[in-house]
Design a protein around this nucleic acid. Structure first.
Length: 428
RNA sequence: GUGGGCGUAGCUCAGUUGGUUAGAGCACCAGGUUGUGGUCCUGGGGGCCGGGGGUUCGAAUCCCCUCGUCCACCCCA
């Protein structure tokens, strides 16, 4: 067991980081924006456990790296220990909750929560990363696919991102998918010696992953592979047509990429991904999802369709930086109380103002007026209420405008709230 | 898991061919006569030079190990 004494002070574990003020104000704003988009569409917040029975996540696909080598799994301390794992993605736990509580459908929820994957961190990729997401369970209607994709699209638009591209594909019904995998596997085996060895190794477990390979050598083979989209059942083809028509009707541009298969095994029908042109290609996916009509059943529920997406907060904020949009909002109080008479007024007046709905702060440790004024300036507050011995004796305070040209005036202590309200109602 | 770059103050970084008590800017604190910020001046606090071991009279500097970090591969948000 490694001792911390050889590492100096404790620090956040590898691949994790602290999000502190003022940066965290940006997180608050981003989540609030997302909550607004989802809430206006009738989605409610779901707060679930950050860990689940390992088997909940194994349904994502035994062949995926997320399950095979990136899971933070552990045993708890019970007499018959439970094999648990930290949530590596959002969908499986939501589906588990759906099955457990059996809510009325359509069940539409959103979340903002951390995911955990044991992998080497790099740009835009963390061991603890955070996703915004929605899941809509119980409806097979392709117009729901359009809604879900449209909400993510509108979210990106609302935060100001411009260089966002939507790519879609259809993976068909579970039966289409199963049949296609056999066709694909046969094809890939016939050209196995032309594939990069890393891709060749996927033929047995995970043949669809060869399609979106980035390895030069394999790309011609992947491009020439039989396309699932050409072999869809009439039902799946109609579904996909309806989705495309819906996106077009809403004015949402998209392209079809027949090699788009998402990382997790449970997707059926519509798969989609939003990519940013402002990020390097290595990590340019800023959100993605798809339909998972077999997953509820896989997890022990009744056959129930579902669709959702996940959108990485860290990566979206990187994209915002790259595009120069969505700055951290200013976080300043309206008024600060500068008290050099011992602190009674600072203590009492800040609470009086806060209870009246104003944003108010004060300073500590009986600092000098000069020091408190410096802090007042730094705080960004628009007004300062000054209390010295003169004001205290007269039952007044000095109200000073820190930003405009208005200067300062003496007002009765009892009138300061009304006076502040009056002035705050006017633009700075 | 593999490969490469980088670790000096809260932040950004200097630190000569190894040579005294390790520096700057910004930030922070206190003063600049006795009640007022944003400019200026003066002063101040703050560093296991990532950690351990080695070479040397002497190591921030050279060597080894280790930890961390960043980036790439893999994979993904």
């Amino acid at each position: 067991m490694a001792d911390t004494s050889d590492r100096g002070p404790f620090q956040a574990p590898e691949g994790t980081r602290d999000v502190l003020p003022p940066e965290s104000a940006r997180w608050e704003a981003l989540i609030a924006t997302f909550a607004g988009v989802a809430g206006r569409a009738g989605y409610g917040l779901i707060q679930g456990p950050m860990f689940e029975d390992l088997r909940v996540f194994q349904r994502m696909g035994e062949g995926t790296d997320v399950v095979r080598k990136e899971m933070y799994d552990f045993f708890d301390k019970s007499e018959t220990p439970h094999h648990l794992a930290l949530r590596p993605e959002g969908t499986a736990g939501v589906v588990r909750a759906f099955i457990q509580h059996n809510p009325l459908v359509p069940w539409k929820v959103w979340y903002a929560s951390p995911n955990f994957r044991y992998e080497r961190p790099q740009k835009g990729r963390y061991r603890q990363h955070h996703q915004l997401g929605i899941e809509a369970i119980g409806v097979a209607d392709p117009d729901l696919d359009v809604e879900v994709i449209g909400l993510l699209h509108d979210f990106y638009a609302e935060i100001g991102l411009r260089q966002v591209e939507l790519v879609i594909n259809s993976i068909g019904t579970p039966a289409d998918r199963a049949a296609y995998i056999e066709v694909l596997r046969t094809y890939l085996r016939s050209r196995a010696d032309e594939l990069d060895p890393d891709d060749r190794a996927k033929i047995d477990d995970h043949p669809m992953r060869v399609l979106d390979t980035k390895r030069e050598r394999s790309i011609p083979v992947a491009e020439a592979a039989p396309k699932l989209i050409d072999n869809l059942s009439p039902e799946a083809a109609a579904h996909f047509e309806r989705v495309q028509a819906g996106l077009t009707a809403l004015g949402i541009a998209f392209s079809i990429d027949t090699r788009l298969v998402r990382g997790l095994d449970y997707y059926t029908h519509t798969a989609f991904e939003f990519r940013s042109g402002a990020l390097d290609a290595a990590q340019n996916t800023i959100g993605g999802g798809g339909r998972y009509d077999g997953l509820v059943e896989d997890l022990g529920g009744k056959p129930t369709p579902g669709i959702g997406f996940g959108c990485g907060i860290e990566r979206v904020l990187l994209t915002c930086d790259a595009e120069g949009v969505f700055p951290a909002p200013e976080r300043a109080v309206d008024v600060v109380v500068v008290d050099v008479t011992g602190g009674d007024t600072a203590r009492d007046l800040t609470f009086e103002l806060r209870r009246a709905g104003l944003r108010a702060d004060r300073f500590w440790d009986g600092r000098s007026m000069k020091s408190q004024m410096k802090q007042a300036d730094r705080s960004g507050a628009r007004f300062a209420v000054l209390v010295g011995s003169d004001e205290l004796e007269a039952g007044e305070v000095t109200l000073r405008d820190l930003r405009g040209e208005a200067g300062q005036v003496r007002v009765a202590r009892a009138a300061v709230l009304d006076e502040l309200r009056r002035r705050l109602a006017q633009p700075a």
